[in-house]
Design a protein around this nucleic acid. Structure first.
Lengths: 136, 136
DNA sequence: TATAATATTGTAATGATTACATTGTTGATA
DNA sequence: TATCAACAATGTAATCATTACAATATTATA
């Protein structure tokens, strides 16, 4: 079993009950959840949980390199626990967000050669996933 | 001189005075403007212009393939008149948004091979641009 | 011109996020 | 163990980009 307390502490985040529960949810459900999704899943377990705490905690996790926000263009922000460079694919049929491996990132070299200092890279696709494609 | 009326008509958009003015601004200022930036620049020329008209017009342009929205993660949506596949780089110092050519898009092949039907691709970098890098 | 269709406008509503003040919890120290 | 300070969690209110909607204006066509 993973030691969530340790994960938080290593990044300088004090492991409160709420923070541990939220991190546990992120690690066990890699579904790029929104604040609302996290809140609704955890409220059963932590009945006093406030939505504000979820907002605060995710902002804190982000600042300390524990999650990354992903902006799919819809109204709510999603959060991703996977941090290494990868792309996202959002299916417009089922609305699921898929992680896509980037096997070849040579395309970044040209940008760096042109003198741009890249701190963050987001690659995002919209379309129809294999499962929904088959259904039609 | 470009015939803006024709550009709109070819995409099935009726060329009203407001629409022509907004399209003209987009074509002459490729700065990935927000609704607010467009509004503030055009209000001098069209004193009765409503912010709602700018919102409506950009949504209409988007639906008819005349502009694409770009989401930089800040609160306002930007719009881009350049439609061919390219990336964006946002400088965290000067806040400018740069267009970045994609010289090699082989990385898309793997995604397609995996059965994903890509309808839209967004590539977005955050970092420090060459000019701001030099200043420091 | 008359009339229908469409476009523009301004105000009000929406909804995600943030600000802020209050309350609760924890941990160190005497 | 009691005290106190630092920090965390909570709930409400504010913010602000965007959208909904109703009223007015404009345009196109018969």
């Amino acid at each position: 079993m993973i030691n969530i307390k340790k994960i938080l502490e290593e990044k300088g985040v004090k492991p409160s009950h709420q923070r541990i529960t939220i991190m546990k949810f992120m690690l066990e459900n890699k579904i790029h959840p929104t604040v609302e999704v996290i809140y609704e899943n955890i409220i059963k377990e932590l009945p006093t949980l406030s939505r504000t705490t979820v907002y605060n905690t995710l902002k804190l996790f982000e600042l300390n390199g524990l999650v990354q926000p992903i902006n799919t263009g819809d109204s709510e922000l999603h959060y991703d626990i996977t941090l290494d460079l990868h792309a996202h694919f959002k299916c417009i049929e089922c609305n699921d967000i898929f992680d896509i491996d980037i096997v070849n990132n040579d395309f970044l070299d040209k940008v760096k050669d042109d003198g741009f200092n890249i701190l963050d890279t987001q690659i995002y696709f919209r379309g129809i996933c294999p499962k929904c494609k088959e259904k039609k």
